[in-house]
Design a protein around this nucleic acid. Structure first.
Lengths: 180, 180
DNA sequence: AAATTTATGTCAGCCATGTTGACATATTTT
DNA sequence: AAAATATGTCAACATGGCTGACATAAATTT
């Protein structure tokens, strides 16, 4: 990819464009906005991070929405639908669609709650567990490689940064979900 | 939210479900997979991080795809369409749709390249710059608050972690884009 | 000069996944 | 008995990905 930043003599003349209005030629700069590198790195890191499981998913005919559901059901077997909704921050209908597919294809099962029989507790089947692990592996590898050269203190710092990016009101809930 | 982790006596009896096959009741554990906390924190951090500009976008009738385009055009005025595609990793058609809307509504303009007249260089209009800044502010605030209690060395560590999550083959390109 | 490559745009259609609103059922709580 | 809760479902719609095919203008190569 060629350098995006234009030299002065490369800036196209505005007069050449009959219909051109005024345009802004100076960039929003990362020097003046020290948060920008973090904002953009978060974008690029997530872009690549979530693309890892795509091949595996395609093999099953599933998408990223299925991945998220399979992951959290495997991390918390017996999770309630309501809790899954609260984690994913999507609507019941959106979840219902992918959940139904995962149940119909035998990756997740619903068991009626023993205490509260209104609840449909979600469990992975052995196939669901296997799928979850296959989706997890490439991401573990990516994160593991990133952590490789970092000391325990540095890892803790990276973890702390990510926690602080999460909504304040969600942090405790996330901490409980993650288990620390 | 109630604790998701069930006690043993809360696990519903499988015998109660006539059609129930075997299910897996033990979780994929973060103790055995030290990368999992990072994987999940990245999910939650990004989930909240990208929701910041939603209100602003709704006021303009735009979505998150418009945000990404407006952001990078403002960060790199005069960027070529091909470079934008390479950043966003989407297809020409997907970009074309939102780009056309942003041009039609006067937030972005295209100027013919002076050297290579095949190119359509993208510039923000003053309105486009204003929109970019309005979208940027809440994210700057979120990241700024996260960085607040971190030393320069810790900030560098968080930044390094994010860089290492990015595809190896993309890191240099991203470094150039970010300007360091 | 002609042929090829490149940068971009566009049409048509499809798919995944998000949304709202309304309503139904079973179960628990009051 | 009534109200609240957990879940499911139907219908419709919006956003934003995708593929494949084709068109145009301009630059590059032969």
């Amino acid at each position: 990819m060629a350098d995006i930043n234009l030299k002065d003599d490369e800036i196209p003349s505005l007069r050449r464009e009959s219909a051109a209005g005024r345009v802004v030629t100076h960039p929003i700069s990362a020097e003046e906005n020290p948060e920008i590198p973090f904002i953009e790195l978060l974008f690029f890191a997530y872009r690549d991070f979530v693309s890892d499981p795509d091949e595996v998913l395609a093999g099953y005919g599933f998408g990223r929405a299925h991945h998220r559901v399979v992951h959290f059901v495997n991390r918390h077997p017996g999770i309630r639908v309501a809790d899954l909704l609260d984690i994913l921050k999507i609507t019941k209908q959106s979840l219902g669609r992918v959940l139904k597919q995962l149940i119909d294809t035998g990756f997740i099962e619903q068991l009626t709650g023993a205490q509260d029989r209104r609840q449909r507790l979600l469990y992975p089947t052995p196939a669901g567990r296997e799928l979850a692990l296959r989706l997890l592996h490439p991401q573990e590898h990516r994160i593991g490689a990133a952590l490789e050269g970092m000391s325990p203190a540095e890892r803790a710092t990276a973890e702390r940064f990510l926690r602080l990016v999460i909504d304040r009101g969600e942090r405790e809930k996330v901490a409980r979900l993650i288990g620390r």
